[in-house]
Amino acid sequence: MVTTRGRQRTGKPLPQPDLDEIEVEQVLRALGEPVRLRIVRNLAAAEQPMACSAFHLGVSKSTSTHHFRLLRESGIIAQHEQGTSRYSELRSDELEDRFPGLLAAILAAPPKRPASE
């Protein structure tokens, strides 16, 4: 069972690193890509885990899967499968324990403006 934000999730959890295995370099590298940062911003605003299909990322399904996998393997999100859906949730409390203030600072930064502005 996946436990994040103090809640238990049913379904099959996908592999993720333990808290002490998460490295700041991996987190920063993962969040340096605009699509992944957008995923994290959406999850931070969500009240509950989100189905991967709820994100409208404008990329192919395989590219979307790649981004979610990289976020999970970097320790930023937890995922679990329930039926035919895969749900994602930000590991905000755990990341705060590991790197105090890091995620909050990243999420507080203004989003990058499109190049046309």
Rank of each mutant, 00 (worst) to 15 (best):
V2E: 10
V2K: 09
T3A: 03
T3S: 04
T4S: 15
T4R: 15
G6M: 06
G6N: 07
R7W: 12
R7M: 12
R7I: 12
Q8F: 02
T10G: 10
T10E: 13
T10L: 12
T10Q: 12
K12F: 07
P13Q: 08
L14P: 01
L14S: 02
P15M: 04
P15G: 02
Q16R: 14
Q16C: 05
Q16M: 12
P17C: 10
D18C: 00
L19M: 14
L19F: 00
L19Y: 00
L19Q: 08
L19P: 00
D20R: 00
E21F: 01
E21Q: 14
E21N: 02
I22E: 06
I22G: 07
E25D: 09
V27T: 11
L28H: 05
L28G: 05
R29Q: 11
R29D: 13
L31A: 08
G32S: 09
G32T: 03
E33G: 06
E33C: 06
R36Y: 06
I39W: 11
R41C: 10
N42R: 13
N42C: 08
L43Q: 09
L43R: 10
A45T: 01
A46G: 03
E47K: 06
E47V: 02
Q48S: 13
Q48T: 10
Q48I: 01
M50P: 10
M50A: 15
M50V: 14
C52L: 15
S53V: 11
A54H: 08
A54I: 00
A54K: 09
F55N: 06
F55T: 04
H56A: 14
V59P: 08
K61V: 15
K61L: 15
K61D: 15
S62L: 12
T63K: 04
T63E: 05
T63R: 08
S64Q: 15
H66I: 05
H66F: 14
H66N: 12
H67N: 15
H67L: 11
F68A: 02
R69D: 14
R69G: 04
L70T: 14
L71T: 02
E73Y: 03
S74G: 10
S74C: 04
G75K: 01
G75F: 01
Q79R: 15
Q79V: 03
E81D: 07
E81H: 09
G83H: 07
T84Y: 12
S85K: 14
S85W: 07
S88N: 06
S88Q: 01
L90Q: 01
L90M: 03
R91S: 02
R91W: 00
R91I: 00
R91P: 01
S92F: 03
D93F: 07
E94K: 04
E94I: 02
E96W: 01
D97E: 11
R98I: 09
P100C: 11
G101I: 09
L102N: 11
A105S: 13
A105F: 00
I106Q: 04
I106M: 10
I106S: 03
L107I: 03
A109F: 03
P110F: 07
P110S: 15
P111S: 09
P111L: 09
P111Y: 10
P111Q: 11
K112P: 00
K112W: 02
R113V: 10
R113E: 14
P114V: 04
